[in-house]
């Protein structure tokens, strides 16, 4: 995984807009009487890499779903590169440079690896409704090939996705999130279920991303989270509990009690 593999979007992007990449103000999501997330306020700089930690039910995935637009928040505002996207449908946010991966792989099992990545590239470019098949030298085909190579799936490019191993499907998830010109990516537990070798590979893929691409990563495994993030947000019961650098969080007594205290692991 070299830097150059994923560097291409940077050239096309031109300038990264100033200000925050992602800005949440008082975001709350109620499911009936239950607040899945309550009054979450956070700001992430462009290019910043942040880990979100927290036990099950802390509201991490709900937070992602609100940011991508899978659900609308009950209250609060979400700004993406300065633009208020709180009421935008998911596809409009994606077209503005936001990407995400899913905790449980959501892939197109009936299509090949190459078709999956081609679709992802097509989704963020023009000609989504084109009835004409792509010609041989279509730049999107080339780009899809590069992305497949970047996540080490070249040998499986013509395989049906339903035939891939679990680890390969997780790698494909990442390729889909990097299609087009991503500016900010939400990774939802990308390491879940991976072997130690695959985890090492994931860390190298994440650390190899071009510098202008910021991300938030949800990760249970402290080892992975602390190696790929420069800042950490702890969530607990739908609220932000602590923010700081990895060292601060790791050495925080309250965090240690919460995370390791009640017989965890």
């Amino acid at each position: 995984m070299s830097d150059t593999d994923l560097a291409a979007p940077a050239d096309r992007l031109g300038s990264v807009s100033a200000g925050a990449a992602l800005e949440l103000r008082g975001v709350t999501k109620m499911f009936g009487a239950l607040a899945a997330i309550a009054d979450v306020t956070m700001t992430v700089r462009p290019g910043e890499r942040r880990a979100v930690l927290g036990s099950n039910g802390a509201g991490k995935t709900t937070l992602f779903n609100c940011v991508t637009g899978d659900f609308l928040p009950t209250s609060g505002t979400i700004r993406l590169f300065g633009e208020d996207v709180t009421r935008f449908p998911a596809h409009e946010r994606i077209r503005r440079g936001l990407r995400r991966t899913y905790q449980i792989s959501l892939l197109f099992g009936g299509l090949s690896v190459a078709d999956n990545v081609y679709l992802a590239c097509r989704g963020v470019s023009r000609g989504r409704f084109s009835l004409l098949r792509p010609f041989r030298g279509d730049p999107l085909l080339t780009r899809a090939g590069e992305l497949i190579e970047a996540v080490h799936l070249t040998a499986a490019r013509d395989a049906l996705v339903s035939e891939l191993s679990y680890g390969q499907q997780r790698q494909l998830e990442i390729a889909l999130a990097l299609a087009g010109a991503p500016r900010f990516v939400l990774f939802d537990e990308p390491a879940a279920g991976l072997s130690p070798t695959e985890r090492a590979e994931l860390v190298s893929i994440l650390n190899g991303l071009p510098e202008h691409i910021g991300y938030i990563i949800i990760e249970h495994d402290m080892d992975v989270a602390l190696r790929v993030a420069e800042s950490v947000t702890m969530m607990h019961n739908g609220r932000i509990f602590k923010e700081g650098t990895p060292e601060e969080i790791e050495n925080d007594p309250e965090v240690q009690e919460l995370y390791l205290g009640d017989g965890h692991g």
Binding site: R99, R100, L106, L107, F108, G110
Partner: peptide, 14 residues
Amino acid sequence: RDNPRRMAALGFNV
């Protein structure tokens, strides 16, 4: 057909 939610997350208007 396979996964409308993912298609929206790839930028498609489902």
